[in-house]
Amino acid sequence: MGVLVLWACAGLTWTATGQTPTKPRSAPEPAVKAAAILKILPFVQWPTNTFAASNSTFVMIVLDAPEVAAQLQKVAAEQKIGEHPIQVRRQMPDSWQDVQLIYVGRDYRRGLAGVPEAVRRSPILLVGEQPGFARSGGTINLLLTAESSQIEICREAASRVGIRFSSHLASLRAIQWIDETKVQ
């Protein structure tokens, strides 16, 4: 009987192999956050001269969010953003010249205040994951809980450094746009 069960399992598994992907209903939080970042980036319009070349590296700094960094690193090995290969680092660099995104983990002790003012005036996306982040100078805030998930984007914080978002992103209901008037 045990052999029959095993065969049934094997057969069903074999049958399932290669079927059309389904939509997962639940996933680890870092995986969802990493996927969300990579979904948003194609809709970001960077100022000219942001990249030295059309195929230069897209650099992400992930501060105190090792699980998110690990997820991004897995994807980085397989994907590009446009023509740009992805590099994920976990520490503040000496030079910000080549950095395009800083992810501020909820455990990053100094929060947004720990990001140098010069960086906050550079065309760098500041992505966070705690309430109020997009209202206090951050650009994108990923608020994911078991109960509900939403993404906040402060258009003004982005435009101050020359970053814009495509109109397609603006049409998505999943995004909550934070008005300049609400920025404290």
């Binding site: 996933a27 995986a31 996927a35 998505l172």
Partner: peptide, 26 residues
């Protein structure tokens, strides 16, 4: 079957942003 499954690289990357936000965080 496990091998075949493990070779697919679909998961969350196949979802749209709106679908992604419908995924429950564990």
């Amino acid at each position: 079957a496990f091998q075949a499954q493990a070779s697919d690289a679909t998961d969350l990357s196949q979802l749209s942003l709106e679908e992604l936000l419908e995924v429950k965080v564990e």
